[in-house]
Structures are given as structure tokens and as C-alpha cells.
Amino acid sequence: MTVATLPEAFKSLMPFMAWALPTERERTIKRLASSMDELNSFYATAMPQLETIVAFLDREPLEQMSAANKPLMNLMLSLVEISNIVELYKRLDKFDGMHPSRFVSYEQHHS
């Protein structure tokens, strides 16, 4: 698999391309496998660019998002995925819920 590339303006996110994951299940697995430092550095790089990225993505209708822009969108979905830890819990061991792998998630609209 070739690593997708990002538009020039967002090249600073290239080190985080492993987060460009299309499903919640994959994003959660990646989050659970990451250290606090990794989460913080992804958040610190992505968060300040979010507004510009959304404006960039919204140049085309969401339903017809081009394949080239999907990795950027998926990166932003991963930013959302990690934000509870970074913004609320601030530590990996604070959240005290059922293991997320037991929340079996289905993306499709028909389930």
C-alpha cells in the first residue's frame, strides 16, 4: 500500500498519516495502541489546522469527497477520536469504562 499524500498546505501532518483511518474501529485500535506523547503530538499538530482543513474540504460536497481528500478527512476524524483523552482525561489511565473492543461498532447505515 502506498502512503497517501497530503496537499502541500497540510504537509506537517504527514508524520501522522497512520491515523488516516476510515472506520471508528480502526481509529479506536490505533488510539489504544498509542502513548500519551503520541496522542499529544498528533493533537498539537492537527488541532490548530482544523479550521483551515474543514474550509479546504468543504470546497467540494461532502457526499462526493474526492479520494484524494479522504485521508485528510479521516485524519480529522482521528483527531476527534483522541480528543476525549487529550482534552478531558489528560492521562491514559483515567478513563474507567468497559474495554472499547467490547463495543462492537458498525459503520453501515443498515444495522
Binding site: 482544523l50 482543513i53 474543514v54 474540504l57 468543504d58 460536497p61 461532502l62 457526499e63 469527497m65 478527512m73 480529522m76 476524524l77 476527534v80 477520536e81 480528543s83 476525549n84 478513563f95 474507567d96 469504562g97 468497559m98 474495554h99 472499547p100 467490547r102 463495543f103
Partner: peptide, 30 residues
């Protein structure tokens, strides 16, 4: 149905926020 990227991300945010809460609940159920 989300009609722009900001809305889609805002929905995912609300979803994840509640999801973690429900995971706390589920642990408590047991």
C-alpha cells in the same frame, strides 16, 4: 445526514463523547 465536513466532525465528536460515557456505564452494569 451531514452536508459538510464541519458537521460530520461535530457529529463524530458528540458520538465519541457519549460513547465513552456509555462505556463507563457498561462497566458499571456488570
Amino acid at each position: 445526514p451531514a452536508d459538510n465536513a464541519g458537521t460530520r466532525l461535530a457529529q463524530e465528536y458528540a458520538l465519541c463523547r457519549l460513547r465513552d460515557t456509555l462505556q463507563e456505564d457498561a462497566k458499571a452494569h456488570e
